[in-house]
Design a protein around this nucleic acid. Structure first.
Lengths: 326, 326
DNA sequence: ATGAAAGCGCTAACAC
DNA sequence: GTGTTAGCGCTTTCAT
């Protein structure tokens, strides 16, 4: 069971200093002589002392805890993001509390995270009631969105520049000599998807090409396959397909294979590991996920520490087109 | 910035009761009249009060925080596990702290998690220094392994029954009329892999078949592909291949495709979503991940709450063979 | 069943 | 630079 913790008081007694000195030794910006600091730090290490972050948080009103709300989706992209966010949070001296949104109680987990005095909440899911978001305001919990966009809240949004992604896709197809474009993605619902479509659509027209067609698909393999089937069976003579993400793109390729079709230029978004697998060789727009996560955490901690107060920002990063066989 | 928190004291004053009564109202097994409890609970909710879990943890010496150490591997299996573990922990009233093991400082993140008084640590990676594990003993942090096996520590290990998996693979191949088996997996290092090989090997001999050959491969697509190439170029007339996991299995299939080869029965382990993708149709041994995670968390909380003290156990669950085209 | 009081381990404001 | 003191918000005796 739980062993009795060694406290700063114990250390102080053992080393013949006051308890505050022990506290100061562990606080880099406290005024204490170097001599004493090393003496205490070494002594504490020898005795196996570790400061109690809970007690520190209680008094300092800063827990260093950040909750990450994420979908239980099968898209590896989200997990990668969550892991990267957690790493960045740790690098900043905090810790990430993982809040997967399970079907049942949508946000009770996050409600309880608030009881742990989380300093911030990063939302990487769309399935979150605005109730939670309102509580962020109420409790003063800083809020960030990753690749999500919800207006009207004191939050910033960090993610891929979807506008640019749509443009890049159209430009790439055009450069490759394609002239009849299609877009596959969810209809309504996803703001991300809508932005990609809008830019892709606009740029296609700017290039003097015909109106691109839009095929509806949710974010899974099967939907991508169905989209391919649908396109094959239609009368459209499309030669380039922009898929809202790699999962759909891979599904689309699977659909083509199944019907022994080909001849389309295909681009996805995300550059999940599977996109590079030999069977797919899916060209894709790769978001700078490391930069996005780092930037999101930086922004969040900036607000937590009161360095920047600004909210309502979209901090966007351009993706890079990874050209593969598709 | 951080708003001043509403405390139980504030609530007490507002409602004209003592602070202890507010505390009791929130503690299901405290002695308080139903009348008062509902009165306080409703009043608190109206005022927007939430108890401070940090303060509770400080006094009760139980944080409800569980750290999950996981690799930053590209295997979707690990992320799924992490998410499921987090959900189970939440279901038990706790919270999961995500500790991805980044390349640099192997366990400094976990060291710091100890400062947050985590009640337990679930290890889902092999890249963890035993230093951390020793600290678990020292600090009285309960320890669990998921699909990992390290002896000599006060910990339990929950996961797939690798023995049974090896047997199932050999039996399945035999049933399908195959007679010359190969195994692809990492050499040394992974205990998991070793157990699967051992059982597969033993059962193959028990079936009266020839010694299975063993091809070395690390846990990534490329290694799987190389293994296929190696087998193709060798003189072995293998007709069935047991891959240590799905990633290797998919790589193996990719390798075969690349050389226009076929005719092997192939089985993987994990049943990651990609195994069912049309291009692979990889038969696989599917671990009951939900049960494994639930059981791991249950066992861990059992020890944390002092209900069961037993350690050194292997809690194993049999996988089910998912038969696909491969 | 209820209230008063002690104290969990720490930080920070205050003296010196 | 260092020691003393007062809490952070809660749970838990201990009275009543």
């Amino acid at each position: 069971m739980k062993k009795p913790n060694l406290t700063s008081n114990d250390i102080a007694k053992h080393l013949g200093v006051s308890q505050s000195m022990v506290s100061r030794a562990f606080n880099p910006k406290a005024s204490i002589s170097d001599e004493k600091r090393t003496y205490i730090l070494e002594g504490a290490a020898k005795l196996g002392y570790k400061p109690n972050a809970l007690a520190r948080s209680l008094i300092s009103n800063r827990s260093g805890l950040i909750a990450i709300a994420l979908d239980s989706s099968a898209n590896p992209m989200y997990d990668l993001q969550a892991r990267m966010l957690a790493s960045e949070i740790q690098a900043k001296g905090g810790h990430a509390i993982l809040c997967p949104i399970s079907n049942g109680d949508l946000d009770s987990a996050i409600q309880r995270a608030f009881e742990y005095q989380v300093d911030g909440l990063i939302i990487a899911t769309s399935r979150l009631s605005s109730n939670v978001i309102e509580q962020c305001e109420q409790y003063g919990v800083c809020l960030s969105f990753i690749n999500r966009y919800i207006d009207g809240f004191r939050a910033n949004s960090v993610g891929l520049d979807n506008d640019d992604a749509g443009n890049q896709a159209a430009d790439y197809f055009f450069k490759k000599g394609c002239s009849s474009f299609a877009f596959v993605g969810s209809e309504g619902g996803s703001m991300t998807c809508e932005l990609r479509w809008n830019a892709f659509h606009r740029r296609t027209l700017e290039l003097g090409l015909a109106e691109p067609i839009r095929i509806s698909a949710s974010f899974d393999i099967e939907s991508g396959m169905q989209a391919a089937e649908q396109l094959i069976n239609s009368s459209h003579k499309v030669d380039a397909v922009f898929c809202a993400n790699d999962i759909i793109g891979i599904g689309f390729i699977e659909g083509l294979k199944m019907h022994n079709q080909g001849g389309y230029k295909i681009i996805g978004v995300d550059d999940i590991p599977m996109a590079s697998w030999p069977s797919y060789q899916l060209s894709t727009i790769k978001p700078p996920t490391d930069i996005i996560c780092k930037s999101a955490v930086e922004d969040l901690f900036g607000r937590i520490n009161g360095n920047n107060e600004k909210t309502g920002n979209y901090i966007l990063f351009k993706g890079t087109l990874v050209e593969r066989a598709s």
